[in-house]
Design a protein around this nucleic acid. Structure first.
Lengths: 222, 222
DNA sequence: TGGTAGGATTAGGCGAGCCTGAACATTTGA
DNA sequence: TCAAATGTTCAGGCTCGCCTAATCCTACCA
């Protein structure tokens, strides 16, 4: 088999996507948080996280938590994309309520090959968000054409959509409070040596360069 | 948990639906046939079939093969229904070719709750057959309203659709050769003490009462 | 009718993913 | 600063579904 083409077990996928979701509220994601979220014992979570570290999908820092590696993030984004596409289908076409749809999507996402996700996306007419308004990650191909980068890289006048946040709990909390979260579209107004001025949902906000470096976006073509 | 409500593992479901399919070419289904079909070792198949016998989903007759019990048949029909509904969706709505659709459906079928199957069926406007023309089994509820019965039970003038055959290899082979197979619609022309005359796809056929007792149908409302 | 080919079964083992219980390490706040 | 609280890890065990290798059994045909 060539070049790590295996898509991993449903269980591994669950771990990755859970970390992917939870990191939006602080990086790294503490093991106890995973314990709560996944309903497993600390021993089990620990074991699996160690394993995922060996497989270079996670970095594990004891007493601190886990971070996704580049590969882990790619895989997780992939699953999340499938998950949210199914949610759109289940709610939009079959009339499920969101809670049920979410539960079903949790299963289907693990058995959805790439080409199915792609065709489903087309069938649904390329939705941007799931029924709850959460953004649907781009496919691998789309992402290559339009990669994620730090907000800091932009210039005044640029428009971008936030994809994810990489800060620690404090930073992330602050950004969340100011409505900086995945899916939001922002406009860059000004950049200087210490800070960056952006327009987010009609409100201006000044971010330090430090902070702006932890907000990842995709440039929107004007 | 009340009254055996668990839907069993994907693996068990695979066994049941495989037997369900294979029995159309002869009952009981020999273990070596399952070995070929499922790509597992005789030891594994044997082990699992014993287990399924304990769970009252199969009857196992050594050197002969396995039969589905009533409960096993219900479960298998259920899965097959989901499988074929997915095939209709994947081919009809997403444009997959049948082979790919079949492979994907093999996975999805195991993670499809009842209500999803029901809604999918509605969304697809109650298809009768999959893209290859094989009949889609009725849902449990529909089946209760219109149960399966032996062809022998019918009277002249009745119209019915064949659901399955219960004969041994010879009987099944004979019936297949005469175009008696699941999905076909037949009209009963006459019944006497020794035989039954039916019209099947424009051709008349006489079956002994013996044989007619092994052909199971659903009455079609005139 | 008895030998043999092939089917059935047993014994032992493996990996994945989870568990409990106990021991151990670190962080934190009084 | 040090002890309690909290987090981590180890050891051992379990189920599931599969495997190989060896052995046992039956059906069938020459």
């Amino acid at each position: 088999m060539l070049l790590s083409k295996k898509s991993r077990s449903a269980s591994i996928q669950m771990y990755l996507v859970t970390v992917y979701r939870l990191r939006e509220q602080g990086n790294p994601v503490p093991i106890p948080l995973l314990v709560d979220e996944m309903g497993l014992t600390p021993a089990s979570i620990n074991e699996m996280c160690r394993k995922l570290e060996v497989e270079k999908l996670l970095n594990y820092i004891p007493y601190s938590g886990v971070n996704l590696t580049k590969r882990g993030e790619e895989l997780a984004r992939d699953i999340l994309r499938k998950h949210r596409l199914w949610e759109v289908f289940l709610v939009g076409k079959l009339g499920f309520d969101f809670e049920e749809a979410h539960k079903i999507a949790c299963q289907l996402e693990h058995y959805t090959p790439e080409d199915l996700a792609d065709r489903l996306e087309g069938f649904l007419e390329y939705p941007q968000v799931n029924p709850r308004g959460e953004p649907i990650p781009l496919s691998k191909i789309a992402l290559e054409q339009n990669p994620s980068q730090p907000l800091l890289d932009l210039s005044p006048g640029d428009k971008a959509q936030i994809t994810h946040i990489r800060g620690d709990k404090i930073e992330t909390g602050y950004l969340l409070k100011n409505n900086i979260k995945p899916g939001r579209e922002v406009l860059i107004r000004a950049v200087d040596e210490t800070s960056i001025l952006i327009l987010n949902q009609g409100e201006h906000l000044v971010l330090s360069r430090d902070l702006a470096d932890k907000v990842f976006i995709q440039k929107l073509l004007e």
